[in-house]
Structures are given as structure tokens and as C-alpha cells.
Write a protein that binds this DNA or RNA. Sequence first.
DNA 1: CTTGAAATTTTTTATGC
DNA 2: GCATAAAAAATTTCAAG
Lengths: 160, 160
Amino acid sequence: MATEIQLDSIDIRVLRALQENGRITYDELADKVSLSSSAALRRVKRLEEAGVIARYVALLKPESVGLGLTAYLNVRLEKFTATHKRNPMDSFRAAVQTWPEVVECSALTGEMDYLLCVVVADMAHYSRFVLDTLLSHPSVQDCKTSFVLDRVKRTTALPI
Amino acid sequence: MATEIQLDSIDIRVLRALQENGRITYDELADKVSLSSSAALRRVKRLEEAGVIARYVALLKPESVGLGLTAYLNVRLEKFTATHKRNPMDSFRAAVQTWPEVVECSALTGEMDYLLCVVVADMAHYSRFVLDTLLSHPSVQDCKTSFVLDRVKRTTALPI
DNA sequence: CTTGAAATTTTTTATGC
DNA sequence: GCATAAAAAATTTCAAG
């Protein structure tokens, strides 16, 4: 799972194909990488076991499940002082995991501490999230929002 | 593919399961949503045809394919003037599609025009991307980078 | 130590109820 | 919606390079 493994050019082609289509059959995959289907299977299993392939997922179209608004939020946390029972960072990170609207959260270099990507139904939902959830959290000092006007590119495929 | 379809509570549970595991078998899925496997299949096919399920993909662990550095870049484009042969916006959007390092690109509200998420091997690779590719593009005026220190949360699962 | 062909098991898909 | 059956795919086995 955690061990670094050596990837040859066939592995890379297998991974590219699976990033493109996670449900490709071993016959099709074998064709693409010029191997037999059993050899293709063995490659895939090895990559799964080594943790190179983390998981397989279905990707949904946000609008078709009623999620029409995406926003990026730069969040700044409170400084850690003796008055706090708990480290604001730990507290915030734990909270983020429980907020379903947050689909991405990264700690960043620069002035703002965290960048969040939030997916919601509409502006009313967004407003409720920021006021009742995010800014109500004791670790959060302030945030700045940018709304997504247009998703120009979005891929889960890593550049390999 | 584009038509809005009505989703009932079983559809939602099917979608949740598939966002979790895109390779779940229809038997397992049927169990989870308390349906027969053929009924589960029909639900999934309907959701695929309606475009609710966009695709199935494998997700890779970035570090295991040698991609250790992620950055968010706020990009500002040149204003459109008569000197330009082409609208900078169109030109930039087309270019972004061809840059494999860019895994996300969104047009945003606010001062900066675009937010890019860029995945690279290391700082040398990042530097080359910014200097030789991004800033060399005629449509790009300037950019500000924030590096990802830690991915606190990252999910492809939409909050349904 | 990896491959590929064939055999076997499991899953997917179509059909009738 | 379900159960069954046929087709397809995944997985195992095993002989060979």
C-alpha cells in the first residue's frame, strides 16, 4: 500500500487508460497496452496493491443532482492562544471533514491559511454554509469567497 | 444525456454508493439499497443514460507516480484590445486544455480572472511550467502562486 | 519472474413474470 | 419491482519463455 514501486512504460499506459475509464474491461485494456488480458489484470492488481491506484469512483454531473454553485474560499484561522482549549488548526481540520459541502480543503503557503472548494445548490445554501457553519466555527477568523463562473477544465487524471 | 431527471431516495443511495466505489458489483449495490441486482442495474443504467453519472475513473495517489507538488495559481489575463489577433480569453482557455499539469481551471468572480490547480513533480518542474508555459502565453498578464502544504480533504463525491 | 491460452468462477445483462 | 438464464467479463491455473 505505501511502498514505492517502480513503474515501467506499460504500467504508465495502464494507469492512463484507467484514469480515462475506470471500468474498462481487461480485454480492452489488454488491447490498448498490447498485452494479454491476464497480464493486464496482473498489472492492475499489482498497482492496486501498491496503492498507486487509490480507488475507483463514479463522477456525477453536479447540475443534475441540483448542485449549481461552486465557490473557492480562502480561510484564515485564529491564532493559537492560551484561551483556546484546543489548537484551532486541529479543531478546524476535524470540522472540515464533517462538512459535506466542502469537497476540497488544502493548507496553503501565503497569507490565507486554507483554501476550500465548496459545492452547494444555490446562493441561499451558500450563505447558510458561510454564516451558520464556517464563520460560526470558533477557529475561523475570516474568509474571502470567489464564485466559480465557469469550469474551464476539470480532470481527475494526473499528468503522467 | 442532458435532460433533467427526477431522483428518488433510492437513486440518491445508488449514487452515493457509486461515488464511494465505482466498481461495486450490482449484487453488492443491490444489498446496500435493498433492491434486487437487476433493479439496481436498471437504476444505474438510467442514471448513466440521463448523464447524472458522467463517467467512471480510477484515482491515483499522486506521490506514487512522482507528483509531489500541488499549487493553486491565480491568473490575470491581458485586456482585449485591437492589437490582439484573438480574444485573450479564448486563447487562454484553449491553451489550458493542452497543458497536462493543469488539472483544474475555473473562471472566478473577484480580482483575479482564473484559478488553476497545477500538479507537478517538484519545484524545478513547477518553475519551468510557470516561466516557460504559463507566463510565456501572450494572454497571461500575471499570476500569484500558493503551494499546497497539506491536503486536508479531497473528495470527488458530491454532497448528495 | 513475467507471459499467454485455456478453464473456471463471478458478474453483467436481457428476458419473462 | 423480482427471478432466472444467457452472455460477457474477471480471475485462476498452468505450461512455457
